[in-house]
Design a protein around this nucleic acid. Sequence first.
DNA 1: GGGTTTTGTATGGTCGTTGCACAAACTAAA
DNA 2: TTTAGTTTGTGCAACGACCATACAAAACCC
Lengths: 416, 416
Amino acid sequence: MSFERAGNAHSSSDQTTVRRANLGVVLQQIAGGEPRSRARVASDTGLTRGTVSSLVGELIELDLLRETGEDQRSGRAGRPGLALELSDRVVAVGLEVNVDYLAVCVEDLAGNVRYQKHVHTDNRRSAPGPVLNRLARLARGAEELIAAESLVSAGIAVALPGLVAAESGTLLRAPNLGWSDIAVADEISSRLGGVPVRVDNEANLAALAEHWQGVARGLDNFICVFAEVGVGAGIFIGGDLFRGSHGFGAELGHITVAPGGLPCQCGAVGCLETIVGQEAIARRAGICEDDKRRARNVTRELVRRAEQGDAAVIASLAEASRALGIGLASAVNLFDVDAVVLGGCLGPLAPWLVADVREALGVRVLSAGWSGCEVLVSEFGEGAAVRGAAALTLRSVLAEPWLVAERSVAVREGVS
Amino acid sequence: MSFERAGNAHSSSDQTTVRRANLGVVLQQIAGGEPRSRARVASDTGLTRGTVSSLVGELIELDLLRETGEDQRSGRAGRPGLALELSDRVVAVGLEVNVDYLAVCVEDLAGNVRYQKHVHTDNRRSAPGPVLNRLARLARGAEELIAAESLVSAGIAVALPGLVAAESGTLLRAPNLGWSDIAVADEISSRLGGVPVRVDNEANLAALAEHWQGVARGLDNFICVFAEVGVGAGIFIGGDLFRGSHGFGAELGHITVAPGGLPCQCGAVGCLETIVGQEAIARRAGICEDDKRRARNVTRELVRRAEQGDAAVIASLAEASRALGIGLASAVNLFDVDAVVLGGCLGPLAPWLVADVREALGVRVLSAGWSGCEVLVSEFGEGAAVRGAAALTLRSVLAEPWLVAERSVAVREGVS
DNA sequence: GGGTTTTGTATGGTCGTTGCACAAACTAAA
DNA sequence: TTTAGTTTGTGCAACGACCATACAAAACCC
C-alpha cells in the first residue's frame, strides 16, 4: 500500500498551498494578541500590505475576522488603521462523557464560553446507549443556542475517559466506565443528523485546554497530568499535541514508579496510577466505600479532610506526591518540557503535592541546572476536557481557515 | 521579545517556498527506493511531468541527481524512461569524540561509506585541546579524499558523548570525558579553515543512523537506547529526531527505575544508568579496575565472560535487563513508539537482554494488546554515532536541497 | 492650511504550477 | 517491413499568488 520508504515524503505543494498557509498565518497572528491593523499584520508576518489586504478580505468573507472601528493608537502620525479582531460568529461544540457527569460547552474563536452545561449522573452503571442519548440531548441544546443566535458551528468533538482511536472515532476501552469498543463518533453523529464528530482522550483534550485558554498558554512544550479515577496525561510538543504512533501515548498512569508495589488493573505492578489516582489516594487514606458514596465527590472529601489535618489523608497525599515526583521526573528527563501542569483532581489537591513535585524535578531531572521546569496548577475545575474538546475544533479552524468554507457548505447541504 | 502567543505562528509562504518544498519532495522520492523515471516520480508525487522535469533539471545542476542510462523495464510498451538516481558526488563528513576513540567517516547521499577511520585513544585523561587537534587531523584526512575524488562536501557534524547545546555548538557537560563548556563546533571549524560545523549528542546521532541506514529504516517512531559508559537515548517522532525544548530530552539514563537504589553521578538515586551502563554492569559483576584496564574493551570482556557462563556477569546482565525493561516500558507508555533499538554496548550484549526487555514491554505497556512494540538490535558496532553525524547533514540535504547551492558557494568563496 | 506620515487599495511584474500539445522512442501486431 | 498504440520528456499559454510600486485617504504636527 505504501510506496514511500523515506519517513517524511511530504506531499507536493502548489500555489493554493501558499494561499492556505498564509491564511492561517494571518488568522493566527490576529488570534495571538491584541487587535491589529492590516499594516501591523503585514510588518509582523513579513507579507506585503497588499497581500494581507487580500487575505484579510477572504477571512472576513469566511466570517472568521471582522473590522472593529479604528485602531486605538494615541497620538501617532498617519492615517489610523482599522482594527481586525476574531469574529464571534464561528463557534465549536465540546462534549464530554465522564464517570460521574456529562458536559457540553460552546466556545467561540476568541475563547469565550457562550454556553455551558454540566449534568451529574453516574454513568458507571449505565449502558452506553442511554448515556449517549443524554449526551446527544445536551448537544441539541447547544445547537439550538447556535441556531437562535445564528452562529456558525465549526464542528463537534467529544472527550472520553479511556483509550481512544481518534481516526475511527472509537472508544476502545474505558475501564472506569466499563465500556469497550464503542463507536462514539458515529453514535453521536447519527443522533445529531449526520454532522461530523471527532473524539479524543480526556487527558489530551485537557492539555489542549490548558494551552488554549489555561495556565499553559504560550508554552509549546509541557506535560499536563490529568488524574481523576485513573491517571492520564496530555503531552504538548512543539505547540502541538503529541499522540504517538497509534494515539496511545502519554500513558503516564502506567509508568513504573514502585517496582515492588501493588498490582494495577492493567496487569502490571507498581504503576503510578496505583498511588496517585483519586481512588488510590482515598483507599490508601483508609476512606471506605460507604464514606466515598456519601461524599458524592471524592476529591472534595479528600480536600476537606486534609484541611482538617486528617493524618491518614495527609500521609496518603505525601505518598502520592512522592510517586508523582518520580514519575514526572522520568517524563521530564525524556521530554525536556518547560512545564508540568497538574489537572483534574490534582488541581484541588495541589497544595499538598506541589512542593514535593518541585523538589523531585529539581533533584531527578538531569538538565535541571540548565533549564528549569515549572510546576503549574490547572485553574479549570471539572471543565478542562470539554473546553479542550471545543478547542480541538477551534485550533484547527485557526490553522486551516479555508476548511470552514467547505464545512459550512457541507452543513448547509446536509440541513437543506 | 515574543509578540506571538499562539504556539505555531509559522512564517509566511511564497512561491519559492513551493519550489523548495517540491525540490525536497522529488529528491526524497528518488532517495526512497529504486531509481525511477521522471514520469514515475510525477505519478507518485502528484506533480505534473512537466514540473518534475523542471525540478529534476535543477537537482541535476546541483549535482544531487544523475541520469543513469535507461529504465530497466522489460517488455512494457512505450518510450522507455531515463532512470534517475542519487548522485554520488555530494557527501557529508561525520566526526566523533568518544571516551576511548576518535572516528571519522565520509558518506554519500545514497548511504555508501566512502571513507572511514577509527583511532583508539583514551581521551579521558586528555585536555580538550589536543584531542580536538587529533580530531581535526582526522577530518583533514577526509577532506583530502574529498578533494582527490573531487566530491562536494555538504557539511561536517560531530558526535559528542554528553549534554550538547546544538544551536551554539557547545558541549555543555561530558561527565565521562571530564569536559565541560567546550565550544566544539567553533574549535573544529577554526582548525579546518572556517567551514561550518554542527554538533550533536551521540545518542541522538546513533538514532539518526539507525533510521538512515540501520535497523530502524522506515520506522517513524522509535526509541534508540545508546549505552556506553552512560546511558542515553535518541527518540524519533514522526520521522524526525525529538530534542525537547532545550535539546536536553531523551535522558533515558536518568529516569528512576529503583527508587531506593544506588546514588547516581547526577545527584539523584536509582537512575537507570546506575544499573545498565557498561561500567555499572561490570562493577555489579565484580570486574575490578585492573581487569577492565587489561581487557581494553569492557564490553568484549563482558561478552567473553557471559559466553563462558560466568555467573556474576550473567546475574548482573539479568539485573540490567530487568531495569532496562522497566525503564523502556515507561518510555513506551509515554511515547507509544513502534520499536525500541538497543545500541552501543547493548548491541553485543543483546543476547542476554532481549528476552527480558520483550517480556517487560508486553506486561508493562498499557497498549501492548493493540500495538506491539518491537525490540531491535543495532547492527552498527561502534560506528553508529559517526554514521549518524554524517546522516545529520545528508538528511538535511534531502529535505532542503536548495541549500547546497548556497553552501557550495560559501565553501568556494571561503577556499579561494 | 501645508507638510509629513501612515494606511489601505489598485496595477503591472515575476515565479511556479497546471493543462495541453507534440515529437521521440519503444512494443506489438499485421 | 509497416502500422498502430503507448509511454516519455519537453515546450508553451494560462492561471494563481505574491511582490514592488504608485496613489488616494486620513490622520498628525507646525
